[in-house]
Design a protein around this nucleic acid. Sequence first.
DNA 1: ACCTGAACACCGTTCAAGT
DNA 2: ACCTGAACACCGTTCAAGT
Lengths: 200, 200
Amino acid sequence: MKDTAERPYHHGDLRHAIIETTMEMLTEDGNWQFTLREVARRAGVSHAAPYRHFPDKTALLAEIALIGFDRLQNALRAVQAKSDRDLTSEFFAMAEAYLRFGRANPALYRLMFGGELAPAGDLHLNPRALGAFEIVIDLLERGQAAGVIRKRPVRGQAAACWAQLHGLTMLSLDGLLLSEKVGDGAVEAAMETLCDGLAS
Amino acid sequence: MKDTAERPYHHGDLRHAIIETTMEMLTEDGNWQFTLREVARRAGVSHAAPYRHFPDKTALLAEIALIGFDRLQNALRAVQAKSDRDLTSEFFAMAEAYLRFGRANPALYRLMFGGELAPAGDLHLNPRALGAFEIVIDLLERGQAAGVIRKRPVRGQAAACWAQLHGLTMLSLDGLLLSEKVGDGAVEAAMETLCDGLAS
DNA sequence: ACCTGAACACCGTTCAAGT
DNA sequence: ACCTGAACACCGTTCAAGT
C-alpha cells in the first residue's frame, strides 16, 4: 500500500519480528527455556539488536505474557459470544476453553503466572491481566440474575472459579492429575464439585 | 558422640551442606534465582565439588523439591494430629496450613510445582510428592463417614480441594488476589464456595 | 574417595563504532 | 535511528590433576 516500500533493508520491523519469534520458540518447546541470543539468531540479527527495542530480557517476556493474557481473554470471549445455550453449558464451555488454553500453550501459560516476571514491572498490575476475570464475573452475574447461581458476592465466587481453573490447569501441566495418581476423571469431578458450590 | 571426630577436614558431609545451603538461599530470596556456583561458594568449596554429589543442577533442585513435599505433608499432618475439634474446623485448619506453607516458602513452593524439573527425572512420579494428597483423601473419607461430606468419589473431591488450594496459593503468590483487584476476602470466599460444593 | 583449577561453550548486558 | 562486534562478568559442565 505504501508507495515508498523499502522493507528489504534489514527487517522493517524488528520489534515485531522479535515478539513473533519468541512466541514461536515458546510454543514449539514445552520445556521452558529461552535465551535472548537465540531469538536474535533466529531473527537474523546480532545478539545486541533486541536491546534497541526492549530494555532487557524480562521486559520482552513481560510483553509476551501480556499477549498471552489477551489470547486467554479472547478464547473465553469466543465462548461468551456463542450464547445460544443455557448458562450451565456456557459455564462448562468456559471452563473447558480455559483448560484447553493452558494445555495448548503450556510454556506461555507458565510464563503468565510464573513469577520470574514479578521482580520486573509487576505484570499483574496491568489491567490486561484481569480481562479473563471480568468475563467470569459477568457470567456469574447473569447466573445470579437467572436464579441458577447462589446469591453471594460475585467477586468471591469468581475468585473460587479462577483458583479452581488455575489450579486444575497447573496440576494438569505438571502431570499430577493423571489417572494413575489421582483417579480417573479428576478434572470433571473437580468441576462438578465447584458447580455444586456455586449452584443455588 | 563419635570418638573419632575428624570433622574439620573440609566439610565432613558436603552433600548435606549443599542441600542446607540451597534451602537457605531459596528461603532468603523470594525472587527465584539460584546458581550452582554460588551454593558452592557459600559452602566454601570449589564450583566443581557439587558434581561429586549430584549429577547436575536439576538433580539437586529435584531433591530440594522432594524435601519441600515432605515439609508440606508434615504441616498438614500436624493439623491432622490435633483432632480435638470437629471435621469442619479440621478442614479449615488444613486449608489454612496449606496456604500458610505456600506463603511462607514462595520460592520453594514454586519450585515444587514449577515444571523446570519436569524434563529431569519427573519428580511428580515420586510417591513422596503425593503424601499431602493422601491426607486430604483421609479427611474427606472421615467426612463422608460422619455424614458431613457429600457422598461422591473421594478422589474427585480431593482433586477439587487440591486444585482450589493450589490455585489460591499460586494466585496469592502472584499477588493476584489482593483486595484492589479481586475484592476483599477473596480467599475466604473461595474456600466457602468449595465447602458448599463438598458439604452434604 | 573426594576435591581443585583450568578449560569450554554458552549467557545477559554494555558500548564504542559503523551505516 | 537502528544495527554490529568486541568486550565484560557471569553461568553449567567436564576433566585432568592433586590430596
